[in-house]
């Protein structure tokens, strides 16, 4: 059987809220090392990869590898019934056709159980090579969210360019153009405001803002977001979930014809 308890159930709620508009359904894969998901959006332009480590759960048991297909909209409906301070336990029997979500309030006075029907989902897994990226930028997740939201009111695409001192976001549209530059700032007194750049090669790539705005729905999961860029490769937008795992998004760049 599979059983996993997450004291901070809100994490699971936030993860599902962050991905439910991007992907319709997905297989959640569980094995000894943890709970994971990989799914592409319907246009195969972006990909979501979630990984929650077994040791990030207070209790984790997975007797055999299972893949549980769920419609994200339905999962979201159920998780919205969990309180923000509730612990969430997920349970499924081997070869079961449902997954049970148990919500426990902090004082243990309220216990609720919701069963979600599992579905068979055909999913294509892509092999994502472990790569060294030309540039890695770590910036406050709220700053990234603001930038992609602001730029989307001007244009449809953003050019992200990274040099050793700064990362620049630029767009053009019918009404004009916009540029936002964030300088490297390894602020020690306010680590939550730091912007750190690690670069081997300056890089500039163009991406659709619509997807970046969708990724930014993961902002509540982490104080920082990590952007990884290499010439002619998809960008990685990564939210680290402290002590539990990470939620990564991949987005294919715009390519010159």
């Amino acid at each position: 059987m599979f059983e996993a308890r997450l004291q901070q159930g809100a994490l699971l709620k936030k993860v599902v809220e962050a991905i439910k508009d991007l992907i319709e359904d997905a297989n959640f894969d569980c094995n000894n090392s943890g709970f994971s998901l990989q799914a592409m959006d319907s246009s195969h332009v972006s990909l979501v990869a979630l990984s929650l480590r077994a040791d990030g759960f207070e209790h984790y048991r997975c007797d055999r590898n299972v893949s549980m297909g769920m419609k994200l909209a339905n999962l979201s409906k159920i998780l919205k019934c969990a309180g923000n301070d509730d612990a969430i336990t997920m349970k499924s029997e081997d070869n079961g056709d449902t997954i049970t979500f148990m919500f426990e309030s902090q004082n243990q006075e309220r216990l609720s159980e919701f069963d979600l029907k599992l579905m068979d989902i055909d999913s294509e897994h892509l092999g994502i090579p472990e790569a060294e990226y030309d540039a890695t930028v770590k910036l406050p997740s709220s700053e990234f969210q603001r930038i992609v939201k602001d730029l989307a009111s001007i244009g449809d695409t953003v050019e992200i360019s990274v040099t050793k001192d700064a990362v620049k976001f630029g767009t053009n549209g019918d009404i004009g153009s916009a540029n936002v530059m964030c300088r490297q700032n390894k602020s020690v007194d306010k680590p939550e405001e730091s912007t750190e750049i690690d670069i081997t090669e300056p890089v500039a790539l163009t991406f659709a803002l619509r997807y970046l705005n969708s990724f930014a729905k993961a902002t509540p999961l982490s104080s920082h977001v990590v952007l990884k860029l290499s010439k002619d490769l998809p960008i990685v937008v990564e939210y680290h979930i402290e002590n539990v795992g990470r939620l990564s998004f991949f987005l294919a760049p715009k390519v010159e014809e």
């Binding site: 332009v45 092999g127 490769l233 998809p234």
Partner: peptide, 14 residues
């Protein structure tokens, strides 16, 4: 004019 790339052009099947 730039066109949108698809992920399969960058990553192969696992």
């Amino acid at each position: 004019k730039a066109s949108q790339g698809r992920l399969e052009s960058f990553f192969g099947p696992s």
